[in-house]
Amino acid sequence: MNSGALLGNAVPPLMITILAWVAPSLAGPTLPFGVRIPAARADAPVIAEQRGRYRWRVGAVGAGLIVVGTVLAATTPLTWSGALPALVLAVCLAAFARARAAIAAVKRDEEWYRGLRQGVVTDTSLRTEPERFPWFWSLPALLVIAGTAVTGVLVYPSVPERLAVHFNTSGYADQYATKSIGSVFSLVFAQVGVSALLVVVSWFSFRARPELDPARPADSARRHRRFSVRAVISVLLLAACADLSMGVGAWSMWRVGRLSPALVLLPLLLGLAIVVGIAIRTGQAGSRLPAAAGDGAAEPDTGVVQREDDRYWRGAGSLYVNRADPSLLVQKRSGFGWTFNFGNPRALLLCALLVGVPLVLPLIAH
């Protein structure tokens, strides 16, 4: 197996391990591993203990699986490119669920919410004076799509009649199709579909219900504004990088006849690095942004804590299911960005469309 194929086998599980290791740092202090806690308990020993154990498990087991999987991929004819990331992801999710359960158990046993005033808060200015959607940052994706399409038109006459449309992990073509508009421009159609879907998701998430802290509502509203803009920008830049990867794949189909896994992965890695960098600087819901608005004066604490709502988060705390909540998307409990309200039928329909359209597009193209 060549170095490109080895890179293709090692990079996806490595990225999953890195993202999983970073994830606990993105959540606010009142949501360790997706467990809602009072701010006064943010320094509880069990939280630091579980964070350390989680990162040790993710780092050690993830690195071990990557090494073993890469060696097996290099020494056996079996393909591990799909199984290895799935296995690493399963390990990371299991470690997260274990840490979450341990914190939730201590929270329950010690009755952390006993005697506290719980509440929710809203800021009407987020609707009357909303932030503008950052449409400008969709231009890189549009330019990449346009460049790929124009290149396809120019090289179309010289494209071979039997066109390579799929490549194995070593970069060699293993499926061919007859030259046609659909086959030649299949990746251009994919670029349009992926970018459109990411823009749609960004637009809906930009208007999702904010998670404001009733203890400091004004400050959390300011954080939410900056978080929403930065998160959408990161998604739009990721779309451009994904389009660039598909553009590399299209050029390989048209002119080269062989795919370089490293060249395809490089733009995607750049996009993920942008998302992770913005996430680390911003934090989920703006939790890593400075507390003061600029003059150094901290907002006084109202004495109200956020409502304890763990019962709506299922599994490892990653699935939000609340039939009484009309929201389509809500902020994640861990990681960066938003997730669907799986208790809302409209959200389920939107999720089905987002998953189904990318699966249908290649069939239409061919």
Score class of each variant (00 low, 15 high):
residue 130 P to N: 05
residue 361 L to V: 15
residue 20 A to H: 08
residue 362 P to S: 03
residue 188 V to D: 09
residue 201 V to R: 01
residue 191 Q to L: 11
residue 345 P to W: 12
residue 72 L to W: 02
residue 289 L to C: 10
residue 79 T to D: 15
residue 237 L to G: 06
residue 96 F to E: 05
residue 197 L to Q: 11
residue 5 A to H: 12
residue 150 V to W: 12
residue 56 W to N: 09
residue 176 Y to V: 08
residue 133 F to G: 06
residue 129 E to N: 15
residue 221 A to V: 11
residue 115 G to M: 11
residue 288 R to F: 02
residue 21 W to P: 08
residue 247 G to K: 01
residue 29 P to C: 02
residue 53 R to W: 13
residue 20 A to E: 06
residue 298 A to G: 04
residue 208 A to I: 01
residue 184 V to R: 02
residue 150 V to E: 08
residue 310 D to Y: 07
residue 121 V to A: 13
residue 81 S to P: 00
residue 159 V to D: 02
residue 293 A to F: 02
residue 206 F to V: 01
residue 339 T to G: 12
residue 193 G to V: 14
residue 27 A to S: 15
residue 36 R to I: 11
residue 60 A to W: 09
residue 55 R to C: 09
residue 262 A to P: 04
residue 167 F to Q: 06
residue 153 V to R: 08
residue 134 P to W: 09
residue 364 I to M: 14
residue 304 V to I: 15
residue 324 A to N: 12
residue 156 Y to L: 09
residue 234 S to I: 11
residue 130 P to R: 07
residue 215 A to S: 14
residue 345 P to C: 06
residue 242 A to I: 15
residue 202 S to T: 05
residue 362 P to W: 06
residue 134 P to R: 06
residue 80 W to A: 14
residue 72 L to F: 10
residue 51 R to D: 03
residue 208 A to R: 04
residue 10 A to V: 15
residue 96 F to V: 10
residue 89 L to H: 05
residue 49 E to Q: 10
residue 182 G to E: 08
residue 46 V to I: 11
residue 136 F to R: 15
residue 267 P to I: 02
residue 202 S to R: 09
residue 301 D to H: 11
residue 82 G to D: 05
residue 121 V to H: 07
residue 127 R to C: 00
residue 223 R to T: 03
residue 121 V to E: 08
residue 149 A to G: 07
residue 212 L to G: 05
residue 242 A to E: 10
residue 235 V to T: 13
residue 200 V to Q: 00
residue 84 L to E: 06
residue 177 A to Q: 12
residue 309 D to L: 06
residue 306 Q to K: 13
residue 111 E to D: 14
residue 308 E to S: 15
residue 210 P to I: 06
residue 319 L to G: 00
residue 151 T to F: 13
residue 293 A to T: 02
residue 122 T to E: 14
residue 121 V to D: 08
residue 256 V to M: 11
residue 108 R to Q: 15
residue 104 A to E: 07
residue 142 L to F: 13
residue 212 L to V: 05
residue 219 D to W: 01
residue 98 R to C: 10
residue 297 A to N: 09
residue 8 G to I: 05
residue 78 L to P: 00
residue 223 R to P: 03
residue 142 L to H: 07
residue 337 G to W: 08
residue 48 A to L: 00
residue 127 R to H: 10
residue 169 T to C: 01
residue 245 S to L: 04
residue 278 I to Y: 14
residue 266 L to E: 01
residue 45 P to Y: 00
residue 42 A to E: 13
residue 333 R to K: 14
residue 243 D to M: 03
residue 324 A to Q: 13
residue 331 Q to K: 11
residue 326 P to L: 10
residue 203 W to Y: 13
residue 38 P to Y: 03
residue 75 T to M: 13
residue 233 I to M: 14
residue 165 V to M: 02
residue 64 G to M: 13
residue 210 P to H: 06
residue 196 A to M: 12
residue 135 W to C: 04
residue 231 A to T: 12
residue 154 L to N: 02
residue 354 L to M: 15
residue 253 M to W: 08
residue 241 C to I: 01
residue 74 A to I: 10
residue 61 V to R: 03
